Computed example of a mutant assay.
Amino acid sequence: MIKIESAKKTFGSLTVLDHIDLTVEPGEVVSILGSSGSGKSTLIRCINGLEKLNGGAISVDGFDVSRPKELAEARKRSGTVFQLFNLYPHMTALQNLTLAPIEVLKRPKAQAEAEARALLESVGLGDRADFYPAQLSGGQRQRVGICRALAVNPRYLLLDEVTSALDPEMTAEVLRILAKLAEEGTTMVFVTHEVEFARTISSRIVFLDKGRLVVDLPTERFFAADGGMANPRVAQFLSNMRKD
């Protein structure tokens, strides 16, 4: 499991995460909602060790991400998909996918390439293996990003606003892929502003506000009038999202 215990993160005098407690079990899809600045993306960055906590602890399958050697093991168990793709521009789609399996997991090159091609084929990009990121559309690049995260066979997939840089048509492309992964039982922690999509695929929804976890409920309860909607801040947020 991913276990977050009293996690605190500050930037100077600003508290971005304020004693967050959260557990994600294998097989769950947990969506994290909240306004800009609520701490959603920072939480993802702390889970994968890109940001260090100022207090509390985070572990992935029992490995403490604050310890460098354990962080390396934790990263083998989780794959991250970023908002702005973060693909290596000088590498083809295939090379982006095979880098970690070959260099980190020490898989034979032929095996890594065969698995990477199969992943690209599964998301409709089998004919784009030798294309560079600049030759791909935004939706295609994000699909390559998802495949790159899956190439290490992670137990957990961390997704940080993966559709926010895409137009509606490209967003639909990526959301279809994520919905398929959810149906297949992939464990995901999904930071998103796509409320209705989160409602469709999530087993639980977490709501952050000003760095605090204010609601953590099964999806159906989150949207119920006597559940998450009973919290004034959640009700206001959802109302504003519907107006948008």
Rank of each mutant, 00 (worst) to 15 (best):
I4E: 05
K9I: 02
F11W: 13
L14V: 15
T15A: 14
L17V: 08
D21Y: 08
P26I: 02
G27H: 09
G27I: 06
E28D: 13
E28V: 03
V30P: 03
S31F: 00
S35P: 11
G37R: 05
K40P: 10
T42G: 09
N48M: 01
L50E: 12
V60C: 09
V60E: 03
E70L: 04
E73S: 11
E73R: 14
F82N: 01
N86C: 11
A93D: 06
L94R: 04
N96K: 06
T98I: 10
V104A: 11
V104G: 09
A110C: 08
A114W: 11
A118K: 14
S122F: 12
G124E: 03
G126K: 08
F131H: 15
G138V: 08
Q142D: 01
G145T: 12
G145R: 04
A151P: 02
Y156E: 01
T163Q: 12
A165V: 03
A172Q: 15
V174C: 08
R176G: 12
I177W: 07
I177E: 15
A179I: 00
L181Y: 06
A182M: 02
E184F: 10
E184K: 15
T187W: 08
M188T: 01
V191T: 06
V191R: 01
V191Y: 01
E194H: 12
F197R: 05
T200W: 14
T200I: 07
S202W: 07
L213I: 05
V214I: 15
L217C: 10
L217K: 13
P218G: 10
F223P: 10
F223G: 06
A225C: 05
D226A: 07
G228D: 06
P232V: 02
P232H: 13
S239R: 15
